[in-house]
Nucleic acid binder design. Structure first.
Length: 414
RNA sequence: GUGGGCGUGGCCUAGCGGCUAAGGCAUCAGGCUGUGGACCUGAAGAGCGCGGGUUCGAGUCCCGUCGCCCACCCCA
């Protein structure tokens, strides 16, 4: 094929200008919502020491086991492209001593994440997430805020058909006893579980709940739901969260098997799913991670957060995407080549006044210049004529009139 | 990592083994209007992902390979 030597790496995508405008629109909306809710932007490196992720996400997760882009740099450091957003934010929170200067901090981020997966609908090797992390409070009001923020944003962006799945995965006090109960329940049914789950049963029984295999699901459906084993603290936290969501008018469904692929979650775990997506139907995921800051070397600090997948938003929007206008204010056309210099100088003046302006650089005929103006969605075309006069043409109306340059500029500014 | 589907000009698609691979969109030029969008005319653009095989003959069949897509898995 005559398509060049290289193509974008597997699982990555180019975002061409037209679509890029849509991304801007969505990101701007997210920024606005997050800031309205009191979150401030944080930017962290695209890669980190690999240990940060193995430690936080968990050794026995797929993300760490087989999906991380991990490499040695020339200095022999073991680094990884970030596979998720939370660990870096927590690392930065600790590294900059924010637990002293700003112990309660609310962050948002827009970042690209990397996982070595087999691409399919809604799944890429590089994808983008918009997320928030509220670090430093154990209040269930914050869980509700984070969930509501996601929900509200998805509403605004145009995703109406969605469902919130909610669970509580307990804490270090109650989870161990639940895990014991779960193991007791699963052990006699070991034969019915898949190979992976038999192993999980030993290493990380909670993960069995997350298995999507029909045979395993059949078993785990019968399993005692975790929230019947929550300690008082977790139970009241969960109850309060449900109550708050009710007051906020956010409906949800309890999902006792929702464990999520990251081990750091405590108490709240949730996912928002879009009806319009295929197999990868989750647009948003998040939860509470009260132990993570301490685990990464900071003081005991509760926190809650979530992430929204940009590509999945685009997918579930489908054809219902807003048309973002990015047309020119004016296209500068000229009748003869010898007028190019005048046009070029005028172009600078227009642009200096903040008018979006452009002209031909290919030596095209006037006819072609107008075609181009049309294609660039120019609101006006200013035509410099050979006799020194100028004509301002309204491209929507199709009307035009002779005009002095001073008048034209005035006209274009408004 | 496993399974399935598909790879024809920039994009979409036709082509049931056989004339110089067809059409639509887009592109470019021209015509109609001094000067765009509609319409008309014309032009340029692929040798059918890549490699091998079967055959007198392959875009069409077979094998391999790469890529894309979908699903499992996992997740945003």
């Amino acid at each position: 094929m005559s398509k060049g030597i290289y193509s974008a790496p597997r699982g990555t995508k180019d975002t061409l200008p037209e679509e890029s405008a849509l991304w801007h629109h969505i990101e701007a909306l997210f920024r606005k919502v997050a800031e309205t809710f009191g979150y401030k932007e944080i930017r962290t490196p695209t890669f980190e020491e690999a240990g940060l992720f193995t430690r936080s996400i968990g050794e026995d997760t797929d993300i760490v086991n087989k999906e991380m882009y991990i490499f040695q740099d020339r200095g022999g450091r073991t680094l990884a492209l970030r596979p998720e957003g939370t660990a870096s934010v927590v690392r930065a929170y600790i590294e900059h001593g924010l637990y002293v200067t700003q112990p309660f901090s609310k962050f948002y981020y827009i970042a690209s994440l990397f996982r070595y997966e087999r691409p399919q609908a809604g799944r890429f090797r590089e994808h983008h997430q918009m997320g928030v992390e509220a670090v430093g409070s154990k209040s269930p009001y914050l869980d509700a805020e984070v969930i509501y923020l996601a929900y509200h944003f998805l509403d605004l962006v145009g995703i109406k058909e969605k469902e919130l799945y909610l669970n509580s995965v307990g804490c270090p006090i109650c989870r161990p006893s639940y895990i014991e109960k779960l193991r007791e329940f699963l052990l006699p049914r070991k034969q019915e579980l898949c190979e992976d789950c038999r192993r999980r049963l030993e290493v990380n029984p909670l993960r069995v709940l997350d298995c999507k295999k029909e045979s395993c699901k059949a078993v785990t459906e019968e399993a005692p739901p975790i929230y019947t084993f929550l300690c008082d603290d977790c139970a009241s936290h969960f109850a309060k969260l449900k109550e708050l969501l009710g007051e906020l008018g956010v409906s949800f469904e309890l999902a006792p098997n929702l464990v999520r692929g990251l081990d750091y979650y405590t108490k709240t775990a949730f996912e928002i799913v879009s009806r319009k997506l295929g197999a990868q139907n989750s647009v948003c995921g998040g939860g509470r991670y009260d132990g993570l800051v301490e685990q990464l070397g900071g003081p005991p600090t509760p926190a809650v957060g979530m992430g929204i997948g940009l590509e999945r938003i685009l997918l579930s929007l489908g054809e219902d995407v807003p048309q973002i206008g990015q047309g020119l204010d004016v296209f500068l056309a000229f009748q003869e080549e010898r007028l190019r210099d005048r046009a070029f100088i005028l172009l600078r003046e227009l642009r200096g006044k903040g008018i979006k302006a452009d002209m031909d650089y290919q030596g095209k005929s006037l006819k072609s210049q107008l075609r181009q103006a049309n294609r660039l969605q120019a609101r006006h075309t200013l035509i410099l004529k050979s006799d020194g006069s100028a004509v301002l043409r309204d491209m929507r109306e199709g009307s035009q009139r002779e005009i002095s340059l001073e008048e034209a500029i005035k006209e274009l500014i408004k």
